[in-house]
Amino acid sequence: MAEGSNYDYLFKVVLIGDSGVGKSNLLSRFTRNEFNLDSKSTIGVEFATRTINVDGKTVKAQIWDTAGQERYRAITSAYYRGAVGALLVYDIAKHATYANVTRWLKELRDHADANIVIMLVGNKSDLKHLRAVPTEEAKTFATENELSFIETSALDASNVESAFQTILTDIYRIVSSKTLEQSSDPIKAPTSDTIPVAIDSAAPASGSKCC
């Protein structure tokens, strides 16, 4: 919270995936360097931010961590709109959470912007002896579906920084090249060097859907 409000880019990213795969811990590891073995379940959506440096630019990530349970889908999917990135998380030790990745991709196709950047994240890589999803299999799946891929452990912190850094860099590259290409686009025409990406459009949109 103590981060300054100066940034060059503001990116909205969602964390999605089955219940219990470690989404909230990935977020707390990234934003507060904290891990909690028995953290409470996420109800609806929770929010955190962190600012990082990409190619010399200050990029602020607004991350919405969503509840994994199906019943919350109506609520959580409202947050997909306007998101420029999604971390789709599964648990490498629970095959069912990986099998559900296809369903989550469909969720994103149905509710998120078409050009959202998606990263497949196999979390709990510390549970080596319990591995149920081979790295190569997930990697192949990711390639076929044009997703980036990484394995992380929120518990021992490995690759967490890298996962977020990678997706935010990917988004940054796309957005900055687009800004150049589409500088004639009246909606996206940059008026200053600060480009808040889709944040403002996201909020009112879900409100009107509420009944």
Binding site: I199, A203, S206, C210
Partner: peptide, 10 residues
């Protein structure tokens, strides 16, 4: 642009 749903849902 804070929506009630964002905090009051829980």
């Amino acid at each position: 642009s804070v929506e009630f749903m964002q905090f009051a849902f829980r």
